[in-house]
Nucleic acid binder design. Structure first.
Lengths: 132, 132
DNA sequence: TGAATGTACGACTAAAAAGGTCGGATTTTC
DNA sequence: GAAAATCCGACCTTTTTAGTCGTACATTCA
């Protein structure tokens, strides 16, 4: 429970690589090698980050990615949602499907806690995570 | 990712039941029925809560559980750790086993984020979750 | 123009975690 | 001693996660 998934970890490693390098384009393959991550998965994560404006993709022979957004403007909440799709504490909060239906006694408390957690994740930027 | 697991949900429902009732002992079976949760799993969760001092177990014919601790003194962090065993964001933080070993580029950032998250969960009491 | 390089996307398989069940032992009260 | 309840370990099923494969498309450059 409560674990980061691999895609988010790969995304963090990739972003760290970009943040620490000079502003040259880096291919998905190079990122995968530098971060010791599976190439295919890394490629997908980078594509997702690119489609959401965190990275900028450049085609062609010497193509690749580069940072497109200031990491102080990207929150942990943003990253999780972009890479993983959801940060909700329970499925019922997004899917509206719950086994308990009307019988659930804790929907309000869970919504309450969920909001607190999301606000918390929104308050932390990726830059802040890197610079301790 | 980032989902509460069922055991924690069952624990929350059980605690809510105790918090809202009068201070009589309630059997695991009754709790399971009241919360529409699987009896066996509920029984285990209650046992765990009992062994950690959140509930008090009473044996015998009319035995069961009752609250043993003020819920304003129990944090979400406590509950997650008691019921689920860990709140760490990554396995490597507790198990010391990591596929990347020395090659991990984000161990420090992850530790950093992990501490923030845990402090956050420590700052929220169960009572606070119930009373919006 | 076509070969090289890289992005983009869907389908599939394997591994891991979560959720739940079964059976039985122990403890206490009546 | 019987009944009611807590306690504990092992097992199975389902779901989620992680990773791979194959293929199509876009762009650059010789």
């Amino acid at each position: 429970m409560n674990k980061l998934n691999k895609k988010v970890e790969y995304a963090l490693m990739a972003l760290k690589h970009f943040a620490e390098g000079d502003d040259t384009t880096v291919s998905a393959k190079d990122i995968a090698e530098a971060t010791h991550s599976p190439a295919e998965v890394t490629a997908r994560v980078l594509q997702t980050l690119s489609s959401h404006g965190i990275l900028k993709a450049e085609y062609g022979l010497h193509g690749g990615y580069r940072l497109a957004k200031d990491l102080s403007k990207v929150s942990v909440y943003d990253l999780m949602n972009i890479v993983d799709g959801s940060t909700d504490l329970a499925k019922c909060l997004s899917d509206k499907e719950c086994d308990l239906l009307k019988n659930c006694t804790i929907i309000t408390p869970v919504e309450n806690l969920n909001k607190k957690v999301q606000d918390f994740y929104k308050s932390i930027s990726i830059e802040e995570v890197f610079h301790v």
